[in-house]
């Protein structure tokens, strides 16, 4: 009898913790965020740790030139 009560208590505690975790995930929006990239997608790290990928990206779409006026002499 005593063992059955303990088992129910453990189950109830587990359910409460699981529900609280689920609610937290829902509130913070974490549950909606994908963990892995979909096909064709990259993460920040995937690109910014791969020099070839960066080079290819910059070659295909160069950064805009910063427009500055020419100064003369030492500033």
């Amino acid at each position: 009898m005593g063992q059955t009560v303990t088992r129910y208590r453990r189950l109830a505690a587990f359910l409460v913790v699981a529900l609280a975790f689920g609610a937290l995930m829902l509130v913070t929006g974490c549950s909606a965020e994908p963990i892995k990239p979909a096909e064709g997608e990259m993460s920040c790290i995937d690109c910014h740790t791969d020099r070839e990928a960066l080079q290819a990206s910059l070659e295909a779409d160069p950064l805009p030139e910063k427009e500055v006026a020419e100064s003369e002499g030492e500033g």
Binding site: E67, V68, G73, E74
Partner: peptide, 23 residues
């Protein structure tokens, strides 16, 4: 280093620049 005669202005696009005469 010494410098002289710095002049500041904007170009025709409104961008700032300077000119110093001599260092």
């Amino acid at each position: 280093n010494n410098c002289t005669a710095c002049h500041v202005a904007l170009n025709d696009k409104g961008l700032p620049f300077f000119e110093t005469e001599e260092s």
